[in-house]
Amino acid sequence: MVKKLFFRLPRKSHMVALKRPSFLLGLFILISSISLALFPDLFAPYDPNVFDYTAIKQPPSALHWFGTDNLGRDTFSRVIWAYSVNMQMALFATIFCLAIGIFVGALVGYYGGVADMIFGRCVDAIITFPFLVLVIAVVAVLGPGLTNMYIAITLVGWVYYARLMRAEIMGQLGNDYAAAGKVMGYSDRRIIFRHLLPNAITPVIVYWMTDMALAILLGSSLGYLGLGAQPPQAEWGVLIAEGRNFITTAWWLSLMPGIAIVLTGLGFSLVGDGITDLMRPRG
């Protein structure tokens, strides 16, 4: 970038992006998070749901790293167990958006015309709502809970993927190979899914990576607001909300789960950045 005004920089190997310390750190965080999510029982020192009335609201110590809550549950263990819920958010809150978005975006982008016009207006309408407002309005209709939260996020979120996919497909349509496919008499389905999609999908995948980090933030926010995961399930947002009532006497209850959110979010976005650099188109 620095010297682009003088000449186009010779490109270094893409792989350099993957050797950066920030990417490696992100990868480390991500792999650790996935391990914690898959095998919480291996890492959590206590049962997250067992009450211990002899150890109520104890501050962090060697015995209880993150302290205990008002029922004597070990906060560290609850944060660890929450990994499986919060990590699944990154997947379930995005994967359906991705699938629907790619499908609708590709069709609309390829066929254009009236369908595209209607799609465009719908996109305009949906982005007119603040994302969170529309999501919680849908949750309000469906009722709080994890599954409903995923449905609500998918109902609103696919639009952003579809919009991106549509733009990419339309960009690819300008290329000769798309026209060549038509001349050769290939079916529309073959042109779209075999020829256009593989060339157009990269930015959508990159967006997906960054969106996974956002999904964790969104999911825990909804949990905090009482619209996502429901207590007594251990989920970071829920844990923070539960701790709120004791914020002056037992600050660790709210503050410790937050660290897990920040760390995991950071892991996702660092890896996302690395992959963005890796996949950035040439030129």
């Binding site: 933030l217 914020i247 950071l266 996702f268």
Partner: peptide, 12 residues
Amino acid sequence: VGLSTPVFYIGL
């Protein structure tokens, strides 16, 4: 780091 921190947590 700011991007990875949910608003309610910053507030809290």
